[in-house]
Structure formats: structure tokens, C-alpha cells
Amino acid sequence: MRRLWLIFAQTVTAGLAILFVVSTLKPEWLGKPIHNGTSIVALKESSTGGEPLIGTGSYRDAARKALPSIVHIFTSQKIRMPRHPLIDDPIFRHFFGERPEADGQTKSGLGSGVIVSPSGYILTNFHVVDGADQIEVAMIDGRNLNARLVGGDPESDLAVLQIAPEHSPEPKFPAITLGQMDTVGVGDVVLAIGNPFGVGQTVTMGIVSALGRSHLGINTFENFIQTDAAINPGNSGGALIDSQGNLIGINSAIYSRSGGSLGIGFAIPISTAKNVMEQIIQTGTVTRGWIGVEVQQITQELAESFGLPSIEGALIAGVQRGSPADAGGIKPGDILLVVDGKSVKDPQAMLDLIAAQKPGNLVPFKLRRQKTLFDTSIRIGIRPQLKRERE
């Protein structure tokens, strides 16, 4: 009996030793996955006759698809020096001579952009090219090409450039594929591509951390994609792509206390960028609805003092004389609740809803005045363009 037990123990030990050697040197014999760096190869039978199935650990195909469409943007702006107040004074000229006016200094900047059309249209951030006298884009193939500003929208921080036609009489540039925001969800893998700190084209990976971020004080109109993919200075205007290489956002801003990435970045969704881009290409500007009111957030204290059932809505703090709101009978102290059948949650929502209306349309509004609800119709005006001071 003891001899049989000894033989059994030796057999088990030898079997375990063989299993260890096989699993270490030839794991595929056991049907185990093989880890080869960034991907996982599993020897499973496929419809093509037993070829290994590659997992999704690598996003090289998505990057390879998008990279040719990403450009580096270099801008220069001449800073105009103020004219000397005594330059025309004869006494000043007698003692100091004919002094030529200083040309000033040249300010340079860098950022990123995304080619969205074979004809050379490029999407980027407005702040990347704001005030630039000269714009140059660097392609992935090494070409440096001049570009012109087609138009910009400071309220969404978007701008459209076009590569100068002399570079290609028959333009055929590598345009990126535009994605669909309705397929994007929190947790999706995304890649950010740009030129951080001017080091060169760089790809970083993260996920969609949140959608619809607003009330950040970055732009007038905010509906950001939040991501933890590293975004740094120089990435502005670059691409946020999905795992298939499709453009889903334009990288715009980061939350940072040091100037570097802390894992909280914001991108303008492609749905917004596409709408702005199409308007700029067609008309050179962006047209939004406007009624001419100043609004205020309804706090819990205000709701209690006004006897309101909730804090939803936008408190009308002022009405511009002669504006569409004035013509529609809106008065300070009214609370705007509904625009064209859509509820107003807060002032930002009201701004977005009115801006989305087509100027000239007669739109129904629902408001509260003291404790009475009432309806009115307002003919939407054109939102005045935001003026930007040039340095």
C-alpha cells in the first residue's frame, strides 16, 4: 500500500512539473492567451480558418487613420507700439532728429488643428489664431503651408482656416472622418492628438470622463466632453478621436494649477464644431438667436423670497429697450420657464435654447410673473457679435 502511494505521489509531481514547463514555454498548447506587449493573441478557431484573434489592447489603427489629418499651427502677430506723443513736435525733432517709429515686437504662438475637408479646411480653437497676422501649418509629411483665417467664433472658441490654394491648385488634403456624438458615452476610450509644448505630434489615451460639462466660465456656450487623456499647452485645437479614429471633439482647455495636465481636459463636441464650421464656411460668421435680456441664477434664497416652487428657470434681471423681449412684453422680475416647448433649467440652458433659434422666427415662451403663469410669443433677433480687442 505504501509503495502504491509513493508511485502515485511521484506521478502527480512529474505531471505538475510537465504542466508548469508547458504553460511557461508553450501556453498555446493549453489554449491560453499569449500576451505580446500591447495586444492579446488567443488561439481560437475563427471563420477564416483558425487565425489568431487580435484583442483591442492597441489603438494603432485609430491613430494611424487620424494622424495625417492633424496639423501643427504656428502663428505670428506684430505688436504695434504706441506712437510717441511728441513725434510731430518741431522742438522734439530738432533735438532728437527724425526718429522712425518703432515697428514693435513679433509675438508667436503655437497650437494644433484638424483637416476636415479635402479642400484644406481646418478646424481649430479661436484663441489659437486670434489676432494672428500670419498663420502657417505643418503637415505630418513635413510640408509647411500658409493658411488664411476663414472666420472665427469667440463665443464657442472655434475657428476655421483654409490652406492657401497656391500650395495645391487641385486641393486634396487628408481629411479626418467626423464621428457622431450620439454614439459617444462615458467610459469610451478616446485619444487626444496634438503638439503639446511644441515637442511634435503626440498621441495620449484616456476615456470620456463626462459629457455636457458647462458652467465652467471658459466660453459663452459650453457643452464640453471631459476626458482624462493628457492635454497640454499646444494641444489646443487638436483632435479628440474615438477608438475607430473618428473625430468626436476639438481639444480646447484643461483644468490645471500648474499649467500641465491633471487629468481634467475639455473638448468641444463635434456636433457643436460641425454646426459652427458649416456656418463659417458658408457665411464667414456664426448667427445665433437673441432676445435682449439679462438673466440671473435662481438660488434657494431667491426662490424662498419669491415664493417659487423650485429653483428651475432664469430670473429676468434686465430687458434691453426696443429688444425682441421688450416687444414681447417681458419685464424685469419675470421668470423664464419654457422656450419653444423646452424647459429652462438655468440661465445657461436659456442662453443655449435661445441661441439655437433661427432669427426671424416667432417662438412661444412661458413665464412666471409673481404667482401667475403666462405665455407670449417673441420674434427672435440676431445675437450681436462679440467684439474682441486686439493687442
Rank of each mutant, 00 (worst) to 15 (best):
L178R: 06
V203F: 10
L86I: 00
S261A: 13
L337N: 05
M350Q: 13
D133Q: 13
S209L: 07
I91L: 15
N146G: 12
K172P: 01
F197T: 09
V286S: 07
I335K: 14
A267F: 05
K342V: 08
N251D: 04
G318Q: 12
K345G: 10
T204K: 01
S343Y: 07
P33R: 12
M277V: 04
G260Y: 04
S323V: 00
D334E: 09
G55L: 04
S156G: 06
G313H: 09
A355S: 14
L191I: 06
R80Y: 05
L4V: 03
L16I: 13
I135N: 01
L362C: 00
M181P: 03
R369C: 12
R369K: 09
D153A: 03
M350S: 04
D326F: 10
Q320Y: 11
L123K: 08
A267T: 01
V344A: 09
E166Q: 13
G200Q: 07
L353R: 11
G237E: 11
L30R: 08
I40E: 13
Q244S: 13
R99A: 04
S117C: 02
G263C: 09
P364I: 00
A267L: 09
R93I: 01
R64C: 00
R2V: 02
G57N: 11
P82Q: 08
G109N: 10
Q357G: 06
F74L: 08
